[in-house]
Design a protein around this nucleic acid. Sequence first.
RNA 1: GGCCCCAUGGUCAAGCGGUUAAGACAUCGCCCUUUCACGGCGGUAACUCGAGUUCGAUUCUCGAUGGGGUCACCA
Length: 538
Amino acid sequence: MEYIKLANLLFPHVTKTEEDIYREFPKRKTGGKVTRLGPSPTGFIHLGNLYGAFVDERLAHQSGGTFYLRIEDTDDKRYVDGAVETIINSLRFFDINFDEGALIDGEKGDYGPYTQSLRADIYHVFAKKLVAEGKAYPCFLTEDEINEIRAEQEKVKANPGIYGKWAKSRDLSYEEIEEKINAKVPYVIRLKSSAKEERFQVEDAIRGTLEMPCNNLDTVILKATGIPTYHFAHVVDDHLMGTTHVVRGEEWLPSLPIHVELFEKLGWQPMTYCHTAQLMKIGEDGNKRKLSKRKDPELSLDYYRNMGYHPAAVREYLLTILNSNFEEWRIANPDKDIEEFEFTTQKMSNSGALFDLNKLNDVSKDVLLKIPASELVDFLKAWSDEFKPEVGHIFSDRKYLETVLDIGRAEAKPRKDHIYAQQMIENISYFFDDMFKIEEDFPAEAKDDAKLILEKYIETYDHSDDQSQWFDKIRRIAEELGYAAKPKDYKKNPDQYKGHVGHVSTVIRVAIVGRTQSPDIWEIQQILGEERTRERLR
RNA sequence: GGCCCCAUGGUCAAGCGGUUAAGACAUCGCCCUUUCACGGCGGUAACUCGAGUUCGAUUCUCGAUGGGGUCACCA
């Protein structure tokens, strides 16, 4: 078989050589790591993507390298309008920014185009090269024929796939191929696998040495449309674009042999692989399972934006599951910027982590505590503009809002009330008259005296009282009505009292904020002002 | 089914041949306290199993079991 003749028959339009391409894509000069995110443009982006993107970003930027965005749109069915913008904006929200690639205001960087569908001529140069060297061949098998092969394989218990004797287009003569081409019979280009009966080893930056059998599959590298499959595009692009570290989910591990053979046949050196563990969730059956775009909309990034989690909190949480030593570092360095933490692939876990909302909430409390109230207002405002415009009026008095958000935060043992925007709004709603409502009942112990308690409270109320004067008055009211002035007395002799001062103050609390739990009432009253305080007591 | 990855409390996880098997979250109890939150103290709770190697295995090897992934002209 004259392979070069075949290559020319298949790729008459390809005039460039591989040397031409190498001139267009010179080796990068930077010393740092080069990573990339290669999303397919479905526009859907979930926590798992963010998790991976975070690894890419840290690896690149921590080493003074480059992080770029490549759109992997080799499957035209997947394309969703505006998806690229969504991806970029979602990631930017979490402070993950690209240095080059297919960005919103056009391409940036010297290794473009960064959209795979625009790189067809490049892939063809290398596909042609492989054909010319007898390492790839056209395959004319139809879908039906492939199904038949699979059925036959099942019958004889052979592994499914096109390989070895099942690869029926492998041994077509030039004349046969030419005849089909002229007859416009559709075909794909397949790798002609060497199917070495041995195992190979690859170093993975997360998992250490990986050992698996060599590939034996005649994988499709160019589809009938002339567009490459992921496997081929990955190898060609990452080599040409100078990627040093390929970060991807562990679901790619099984196709690693294909990629390794592709690199070998192309005469290239594979880059460092970093196969991350998948983020899991508990399925309906109680078992762990991979996050799925279809089934788990609540784990899409939008869910967290909707709830109003602060991006810094999500980043902080992600880092705790990404690098096992991060929490320790954080405890030792509570005030350092997250950038200062030295992220390493070695410290990454290689078993799938279950997403833990409790932990996120806990982390979030600490993160929000460190954010000044004025910034919190900005954050809340941006969130409400997008997700809850009906509360827009709470931003009309910024200073007031800041004061509200700052309750108890300056103390040595600060309150950690804030977790995420939606919850914060709910928490502070009683500070706004239109959102204030009585949500809970008076405590059972003081229910019958509620009216009396409030009357006496209004009578003695002096807005200029300081906190201790104010509470002394409540103590007095409690005693007058037969409640213990100290909870301990009540606990000792529960029969002697109707209840204790806590029950009395809870009546007042319910009147002021509408619930049985809140920060200090005196402080709240000071913020509300005398007029509104009295209003609510009526 | 073949191949691949993984395996310490409910969750995330330290550990890398000898430890009373860390820590965080969650949970429970106590303390602080006018409620809640915060904080403090304490408790419950783990090495999947079986063979080896070894004086000694959570740690190394093999096997089993379990979980996950993958076997497309999807990525």
